[in-house]
Design a protein around this nucleic acid. Structure first.
Lengths: 177, 177
DNA sequence: CCCGAATCTTGTCAACGACTAGATTCTCGC
DNA sequence: GCGAGAATCTAGTCGTTGACAAGATTCGGG
C-alpha cells in the first residue's frame, strides 16, 4: 500500500456515490468513506475541507452529469425530460444530494458554475413561456423524485411500473404543447 | 419544574418542526430537542424509541396535515394541487421528512395508515386516467420541492416569485383537462 | 393506600466530525 | 540528480451525538 493513494479525491467521490446509494446521505460518514478507500480517517478532509465540502463537490459533479444528459436532447422538450429522468435514475445519489441546500456550501464557485451550466441547458429547451417552463421542470422533477421514492410506481399497474421512461412520456403527453 | 413534563411527546414534535425549519433534518439532534423542551438528553427516546422513530411519527403527522388540506379541495384537481402546495409551504419541515424513506421506519403501522389516508384523498381527485394522475401529482410535487429550494422562484420575474399559488395555477393550466 | 406502570434522570460507550502536529512522498528548479 | 518546499497522508485528540442500561420519581387503578 503506497503512502500516496494516486487519486484519492476521485476514490472518495466514488465511495460517496456507493455509500449514498446504499444508505442515503443521512447515514453518510467521512470515516466510512476513508475505510472504503483504504486510507486513514482524516485523509478525505484534506481534499474537501469538511463534510459539507465533500457534498458540495459531489453536487457539482451531479450538475455536470445532468448537463451531459440535457445536451443529448438538443433543445427538444420531451427528450430533455427523458434525459433529466435518466440522470436521476442512473445517479440517484447525486440527485438526492443536489437539491438539499442545507447540505451544501452556500456560494461555492465550482458548484455555482456547474449549476449555471445545467440551468442554461434547461432554459434552452423549446417551451411556451416562463409558466410553461415551470410546468415542465416541475413535472420532470416531481416525476423523478416520486419514482425514486417508489411512491409513483406503487400507484401504477405492474407493466407501467416496469418502464419509467414510457410512464414518463405518457405523463408528459398531458402537458399542452 | 415538575418531574413529569405534561406532554413531552407533543413538545418534542413541535421542537422537531422548529429545528428542521431552522437547520434541516441533517442537523437534527435528539439532544438539542431535549434541551429545547427542557428535559434530560434521554427523555425523547422514551416516547419514540430512537431518532428514526421520532422522524417516522413526524412524517405520519405530516400526512395527516396533508390530508386535511386535500379534504378542503373536495375532489377538484386544481384546488387539490393548491392544497398540496399550501401544505408544503406552511409545513416545510414535514414535507422535507415525509419523502425521505431512508429516514423512516419501514413498515410502521401509524405511518402506513396516515400515508394510506392521504393517498386515498389524492386518488379521489377528478383526473383523466392513471397517466393523468401521475402527471398531476408529479407537477405539484415537483413545483413544491423546487419552490422550497428556491430553484423555481429564481427563474421567475419578481412579481411572479412573490405569489407561489398564482405561479402554480399558471403552471397547472399547462396540463390538459 | 399501595403497587405496578409510565415517565424521566443519570451515567456510560462507541462512533463521528473537526482539528492539530508530524511523517512521507512528490515536484520542480538548479 | 539533488535538495527544498509543497502536497498528501497518518496518528492522536476533543467535544458532541445516538443508543442503551439502571435507577429515581410520579401517576393511576384496585
Amino acid at each position: 500500500m503506497p503512502y500516496h493513494h494516486g487519486d484519492l479525491r476521485r476514490a472518495v467521490l466514488d465511495a460517496t456515490d456507493e455509500a449514498v446509494r446504499e444508505n442515503g446521505v443521512a447515514a453518510l460518514s467521512l470515516r466510512d468513506l476513508a475505510r472504503r478507500a483504504g486510507v486513514s480517517h482524516a485523509a478525505p478532509a484534506h481534499h474537501f475541507g469538511d463534510k459539507t465540502g465533500l457534498l458540495t463537490a459531489f453536487a457539482a459533479e451531479g450538475h455536470t452529469l445532468l448537463s451531459a444528459e440535457l445536451e443529448r436532447a438538443d433543445g427538444d422538450l420531451i427528450e430533455a425530460g427523458v434525459g433529466y429522468l435518466r440522470f436521476a435514475l442512473t445517479h440517484p445519489a447525486h440527485f438526492e444530494v443536489m437539491f438539499q441546500d442545507a447540505l451544501l456550501r452556500d456560494g461555492d464557485a465550482e458548484l455555482e458554475a456547474a449549476r449555471a451550466r445545467s440551468a442554461a441547458l434547461l432554459a434552452a429547451t423549446e417551451v411556451s413561456g416562463p409558466t410553461g417552463a415551470s410546468a415542465a421542470w416541475s413535472l420532470v422533477h416531481g416525476f423523478a423524485t416520486l419514482w425514486l421514492t417508489g411512491s409513483l410506481p406503487a400507484t401504477l399497474p405492474p407493466e407501467a411500473a416496469a418502464d419509467p421512461y414510457a410512464a414518463f412520456r405518457a405523463a408528459a403527453r398531458h402537458l399542452k404543447p
